[in-house]
Amino acid sequence: MNHLLKVEGLAKSFAGSKAVDGIHFTIGEGRCMALLGPNGAGKTTTIRMITGLLEPTSGSISFRYQEPGMDRRKLIGYLPQIPAFYGWMSGKEFLVYAGRLCGMSARAAEASSKELLERVGIADAGKRRIGGYSGGMKQRLGLAQALIHKPKLLVLDEPVSALDPIGRREVMALLSELKRETTVLFSTHVLHDAEELCDDVLIMREGRIAIHGAIDEIRASNRQPVLLLETEGDERSQGWVEEWMRHQPAFVQTAEVTGSGLRLVVNDVGAARRMLLAQLAEADVRVTKLEFGHTSLEDLFIKAVAR
């Protein structure tokens, strides 16, 4: 796989405490990578170092297209967590300004601004002052300004965290369209967003990488069958559950009582199914729900960050 960005031994300490502690990773060209982790894991610090807003304490960041002495910022489009604009400018003016700062001619910046405003869906508001924009509109304008110079890498810091459900939905749709055209790195603490959009995930915990790889591979290699049982919660069923917990069969890896039922992680789903169904029928347990599924990425995520 061709890598676009290569990060080696990247570290940053603030006043003695290590925010990012020597991480290594690469982003493949054309991939979409999610940077996941709980708050304070070092996601924003990592992103700020990649964009050049923060000087790393040690380590290196290199791009494939970066010739010696070239300004890395040319290759990056960045949308901060809370994008800030000059309230007295109109949306279009800001885009043209951003484009011209990236070295575009006045005409090219003008044409590209118009197209991008259309694309992010705020063409009508382009002539209005940014001071009057809503949070969702600012986020869209933020995306547009990050894309104006056709960056090789689009870096987004928690792009949907501050939005309401509708704005979130719309920005996600926009992102899934964008990821077809360029390489995307975005941070989030919402696992669901990462699952929906990304090819790769990088889970950080306390400044280190906990898990890194293609999302499908991670899911496949960490996938375990899960059994979910719920009962009506009457005395007999409760008694059966308690009794069952005392004599767990060998295929059970972890078992926990959830309200009126059970949640089991097992290694032999066939054996578990046969045995459980027979036992339930025999004991005449009042089952309301029985589900055979798999551990989700969320289980893995929680396991990784809570370790």
């Binding site: 964009t51 050049g52 807003l53 300004d71 910022r73 040319k74 990056i76 960045y78 901060p80 809370i82 994008p83 800030a84 604009f85 000059y86 951003a98 700062l101 990236c102 070295g103 300004q145 110079h149």
Partner: peptide, 13 residues
Amino acid sequence: VSGTASMILVKPV
């Protein structure tokens, strides 16, 4: 303070 500096200075300025 407003954050516009980080919007502008991530561009090749």
